[in-house]
Amino acid sequence: MTDTASPATTGASAPESSGRSRRVDSDWVRRNGVFVALVLLLLFNLLFTDNFATEGTLRLQLVQVAPVLIVALGMALVIGTEGIDLSVGAVMALAAALIPLYIGYGTGVSIGISLAAGVVVGLIAGVLVAHVGVQPIVATLGLMVAGRGVANLFGGQIKSIRDESFRELGTGSILGIPYVVAIAAVIAVVVGLVVRRTTYGRQLVAIGGNKLAAELAGLPVKRVLVTTYVVSGLLAAMAGILLAARSQASDPTKLGLLMELSAITAVVIGGTPLSGGQVRILGTVAGALLMQLITATLIFHNIQDSWAQIVQAVIVIAAVYVQLGRGTTRKSRKT
């Protein structure tokens, strides 16, 4: 145990100081690349896209990105703990599927039940990860498969939802800002504050940064992990409800499909490393906006939707590559 430490690990912090300037550069790119890209793309559209700078267009972009962003915020927390949550898409479908079943008891009740369903799924994921020790990817994969099944069982086929206040939630606006967008913005601010200002947020980041050290510092590691998956489930349910409200229907087979991938992409592009220990809320917001804008830009310019996916694929790889920055340890060891 103690004897296997090679001088590389026992000797001071010298390895860190070498190549510092390069790290600063790649660090800067990792942190701010997404903002730069977002600004550039905005400029491009302002210059070359007709009718881009209209209220309608911008409003539509924001409305479309809102659910992705809400899911991505929960995902950012999970990734901050060095986890992953594949179940979010299924949770969205489940939450949406529950709405038409309980809307008769009142809009608030049905929304409450939907959110509770998200919490339950998150709780199961959290317990599996934190207490049983199942890898996050497997635990949430199982929940993803089962969750969508349950959603389909409840929801069956596409159901339209006729409820005035529910419709208002999806399509109405306050001070000219669509509710959907306002809710996403509020959630982003709250999550940002939670990460920065609360014990939970600090502990979450510490656990993601060095789980062993956090355990030895007496942090409630399991409780924090469970909470994080619960929050992710809750936010996914929220996003599902908003999507259902916008379309005034729930479609359990389609709703939230591939959402986990979009959310992960937004988080990763936003500069939150998959290895945990950091949560970049502003970056995640920018990441979600960037992905939305890329898709929109391609559509504006009559480039097929399929290209959006291919471009997205390339961007994801590039983003992760930038994160790894200075090449891999493997390589440097070889040469």
Partner: peptide, 28 residues
């Protein structure tokens, strides 16, 4: 193997890429 990127992310991009290519071939 050579770039040392996590398989999860690389194949996630592969998923998007392959499906994008597929849509491209089939007129969306």
């Amino acid at each position: 193997a050579r770039g040392g990127l996590p398989p999860f992310i690389v194949t996630l991009a592969g998923l998007l890429f392959a499906r994008g290519l597929l849509l491209l071939l089939t007129d969306e």
